[in-house]
């Protein structure tokens, strides 16, 4: 059995080894940097305080990913409940303005999305702009979840080919933003 000092050391090692990857995973689910960071920290805090022995089950990485996944699902569930309550008071038609790129680039992206094959465009826009889950999209369009996955992959492939020239501009912008934070 590891002693307290070794446990602390191990938690630190795990945190430093997996924080960035777990944050990426949590961010993909929560779409919020701060909430994603908090989710990863909450998982580690629980491990630390409840003295969950990471070594014994030989699957530290799998345990962490699963714990972050469950934590994020819980947060999303809470957020959905809150949103339902707020929906009655909110004005409709609020548009999320993309602040990462110029208006011209944004229009070009939207134009490329419009040119996607019909079903592919429908799936992609429902996922990206209506924030619907794969399950919801599959149910709405009466297709399988696997078909949704295929359309999403196809959309990204087509867009990536058509829009490769403006990607570097965003990359530089994001890099600058990250480093200046």
């Amino acid at each position: 059995m590891l002693n307290d000092h070794n446990d602390d050391r191990l938690v630190e090692m795990c945190f430093k080894s997996y924080y960035q990857a777990l944050h990426r995973y949590a961010y993909a689910m929560l779409k919020n940097n701060e909430e994603a960071g908090d989710a990863v920290q909450a998982v580690f805090l629980k491990i630390w305080e409840k003295r969950i022995h990471l070594i014994k089950d030989q699957g530290i990485r799998a345990y962490l990913y699963t714990a972050v996944h469950h934590h994020c699902l819980n947060i999303k569930r809470q957020q959905r409940t809150q949103e339902k309550r707020l929906a009655d008071y909110r004005e409709p038609g609020v548009i999320n303005i993309n602040q990462l790129i110029s208006k011209e680039s944004y229009n070009r992206i939207m134009n490329c999305i419009d040119q996607l094959p019909e079903q592919c465009r429908l799936v992609f826009t429902k996922s990206r702009f209506e924030q619907k889950t794969y399950n919801q999209i599959a149910a709405e369009l009466d297709i399988s979840v696997k078909t949704v996955e295929v359309h999403m992959g196809k959309a990204l492939r087509i867009l990536r080919l058509k829009l490769s020239d403006i990607l570097w501009i965003t990359f530089l912008y994001n890099t600058f933003t990250c480093f200046s934070n």
């Binding site: 945190f15 961010y27 960071g37 990863v40 990462l100 790129i101 994001n174 933003t177």
Partner: peptide, 29 residues
């Protein structure tokens, strides 16, 4: 490359704080 495109479409980007800063925060908690 794929992530950059995705971020352009979504209008938001993953930008985690540095690992050391996050660790200090956790240790503080």
């Amino acid at each position: 490359h794929a992530v950059r495109l995705w971020e352009q479409v979504s209008g938001d980007a993953s930008c985690p704080e540095s690992t050391n800063k996050a660790w200090e925060k956790l240790a503080g908690k």
